[in-house]
Amino acid sequence: MLAQQIMNGLVAGAVYALFALGFTLVFGVHRILNLAHGALLMAGAFIGLYAVLAGIPLWFAIILAMVGAGTLSVLIDVLAFRRLRASGQAEFGAIISSIGANLVLVSIAQRISETKVLRFPFATFPVVFYRFWGLRVSLLQLAIAGSVAFLLGLLSWLIFHTSLGRQVRAVAGNPRAAVLLGVNPDAIYLRTFFLSGAMAGLAGVLVGLSFNSVHFMMGEPYLLRAFVVVILGGLGSIAGAVVAGMGLGVLQTLATAYLPSGLTDTIIFSLLFLVLMVRPNGLFGVANTGVGRR
């Protein structure tokens, strides 16, 4: 039973990791907290759902969701952040601006869905279970694990083995120096925002399929958990986000299974709070939390 819970937790954690990766990527490159990231997950789920309802096959609906959420993410960058970047008040300003973007997206979704919880049509994804080593695994869980692993591989290849990745790392390290080296930061921002949005969009469809529930507020709990993931893993750290995402998934599943109901959130956010007190840079982080002499 414990092994089953841990496996379920790892699959849930894979989605957390996928979602939090975009969040931490934008922070790493941009130094801004995008609080509209949860809304991007919701938008991805909405696009995927309405595409499926319109008769589009699921695989193509997923691509539409990723492209759609990615495009929205770029739009948020252009409309809500671009001006702030020049002003030097980006840290505070971006928090405010992205809260605004979040409100806008959520209220549009609320309007579209008429505040209802929406569901994918029955058997959008084949309901198949496999058993091995005493564990029960659904085809959907396998698909989630497979697609997340594929995307993580793709992302780390992009970041560590391509010229785009070198430019991203250069801009993340020092935007002004990167400009001198001939990197166009705006192009980098555009790409990181697209990637980040696309991953959130995919996470949205996967979440919608797993719980068979899509609604306008679904992004908020994931955004709050993304904070936990990126702080545990270290703000801006990709490897950290993956490990912490999986860890959070397991922790949450176990807490739900073995502890009194309702205590899970308290534990998760207390953990976040404690980590910030004890080790604000997280398990892998290198960012400067900024107190005292440097």
Binding site: L33, F227, D265, F269, L272, F273, L276, M277, G290
Partner: peptide, 19 residues
């Protein structure tokens, strides 16, 4: 703490109180 870390820590605190 500073900046975004203060924001995240206090947000966690709000969520703890609500939960």
């Amino acid at each position: 703490l500073r900046g975004v870390y203060q924001a995240i820590a206090t947000l966690a605190f709000v969520e703890i109180v609500v939960s």
